[in-house]
Design a protein around this nucleic acid. Structure first.
Length: 193
DNA sequence: CTATTGATGGTC
DNA sequence: ACCATCAATAGG
């Protein structure tokens, strides 16, 4: 069942929590691909110094200020893409970054979908998908089996050290024990939080 | 196992 | 100049 607009029209942290276990569906000419989300990060608004929107309202960040339920895809380091879901109400620049997922359909067993860059590469997502409406095919999300609170771990967001105190906020959520959660530098294969 | 570095292009 | 990353490499 496709997630309705009302799902996205809530605070980013709430959406980030609820997206764990949800399915991301991409229907392309090359086939239909489905993954189960296991890792997310919330960017809660323009006042959040880790959020791209904190730099101001620009052509690139405009979509973040717009209505919820749209895709925000950006290019990073010249070679990787990151896929976000715009949340909250129009005028509030909040979004959720999808950082890791488990392949369910249309992907080879050896394809890695942990890490935002690898996930986009596996799903074929690029700047062409920026601003797309997520309420219907060919790009949408659907409900999955709920992830119980006991399996949800939280910790600081990855790669946002320059965001001052905001870098410490535990806005990164993941499914405890999942093999498809990304491994930020600084640890071998251990989990924290 | 940890640490470091190069690739590569949009954005401001 | 800066980057919400990744893969490859060098070193212990």
């Amino acid at each position: 069942m496709k997630l309705p607009l009302s799902f996205y029209a809530r605070p980013a942290l709430t959406v980030a929590r609820e997206l764990l276990g949800a399915h991301l569906v991409v229907e392309a000419e090359s086939g239909r691909r489905v993954v189960r989300i296991v890792e997310t990060e919330a960017y809660v608004g323009a006042h959040d110094l880790a959020c791209h929107a904190s730099k101001g309202r620009t052509p690139r960040t405009e979509v973040l200020f717009g209505p919820p339920g749209r895709a925000y895809v950006y290019l990073i380091y010249g070679m990787y893409h990151c896929f976000n879901v715009v949340t909250d109400t129009e005028g509030v620049a909040a979004a959720v970054l999808i950082r890791g997922a488990e392949p369910l359909e249309g992907l080879g067993a050896s394809v890695r979908t942990d890490g935002p860059g690898r996930l986009c590469r596996a799903l074929g997502l690029s700047l062409a998908h920026n601003r797309w409406d997520l309420a219907h095919p060919p790009l949408y999300l659907e409900a999955g089996a709920p992830v119980p609170e006991s399996q949800v771990a939280r910790g600081p967001r990855v790669g946002v050290d320059s965001a001052g105190a905001w870098a410490l906020e535990p806005f990164r959520l993941w499914v405890r024990g999942s093999q498809h959660v990304s491994r930020p530098p600084g640890r071998g294969s251990r989990e924290s939080a």
